[in-house]
Amino acid sequence: MEKTQSPFASAYLRFLQLATVVQALPDGQEMDANESALLQSVVLRWYENEPMTVREAIGLAALGSPATLHKRITRLREKDMLSTLNQEGDRRAKFLIPTQRTLDYFQNLGKSMQQAHQNQIA
């Protein structure tokens, strides 16, 4: 069967190939798709200067039940992908903050996207 793909589909598929390579964390640990989706949600909010609280994260019903999301947050913290920060003056609100390891992880994904784009125009 012949592959007929648009340049955009080809670029995205190459990106997926590259992203798969960097999906593993530096020490060989991996994140499952659910952990990755949660991490992306948390980091996107942080990037938009609206850090997500633990309470908000456990309320992301589209990503799982509160108990499941709490376990995922715990696993991401154990993998040194997230840390928490208490708001000054209010110890009840804990914000989820990406660690340097997470920022490095997304930087590697960004490099993969750029490489896929460079391969597309070459």
Rank of each mutant, 00 (worst) to 15 (best):
Q29T: 10
E50A: 15
P51H: 11
S36W: 12
M31C: 09
A61T: 13
T20F: 15
F15K: 04
A57M: 10
P51A: 06
A24W: 13
Q40P: 02
T20Q: 14
L63P: 01
P51Y: 11
A62P: 03
E35I: 07
L18C: 06
A37T: 08
V54W: 08
E56K: 03
R45K: 13
W46F: 15
Q40D: 12
R55P: 00
R55H: 14
T53D: 04
V43M: 08
D32E: 09
Q23F: 03
V54R: 06
G28A: 10
T53Y: 02
F15H: 05
T20V: 09
E48C: 04
T53H: 01
A57G: 12
V54Y: 14
V42P: 03
R45Y: 01
A24L: 11
V42C: 08
S41N: 03
S41W: 02
A33M: 12
V22D: 09
G59P: 03
E30H: 08
M31F: 04
G59S: 06
D27N: 11
Q29C: 12
S36V: 05
A37Y: 10
E48T: 01
P66R: 15
V54A: 06
A61R: 13
L38T: 02
Q17L: 12
Y47A: 14
E35P: 00
L60E: 11
E30P: 00
N34H: 14
N49E: 05
L16K: 02
L16F: 08
L44C: 05
I58G: 01
S65P: 05
S36R: 14
E35Q: 15
V42Q: 07
A37G: 02
A19R: 04
V43L: 06
L16N: 08
L38G: 00
A33S: 14
F15M: 09
L25W: 02
E35G: 00
A19Y: 02
A57Y: 07
E56I: 06
A57N: 05
L38F: 02
L63F: 12
R14N: 14
M31A: 04
S65D: 14
V21P: 01
R14D: 15
N34F: 10
L18Q: 10
Q29M: 11
Q29H: 13
Q40W: 02
G28H: 06
E30K: 08
L16R: 07
A57H: 03
T53A: 15
W46Q: 00
P66V: 13
L60Y: 04
S65T: 15
A62M: 09
G28M: 12
S65I: 07
R45L: 09
D32V: 09
E56C: 05
N49H: 06
A57F: 11
V21S: 11
N34K: 11
G64S: 09
W46H: 05
A57K: 05
L39N: 04
L16Y: 02
V54H: 08
T20P: 00
L18G: 10
W46V: 01
A62I: 12
A24D: 10
L44T: 09
L60T: 04
P66C: 12
S41H: 02
G59F: 07
I58Q: 03
N49T: 02
L38D: 00
I58E: 05
A61D: 14
L16A: 07
L39C: 04
A37F: 13
M31G: 02
R55D: 11
N49V: 01
M52E: 00
E35M: 14
L60Q: 12
A33R: 11
S65E: 11
L39I: 05
T53V: 10
P66L: 14
E48V: 04
L38Y: 00
T53L: 04
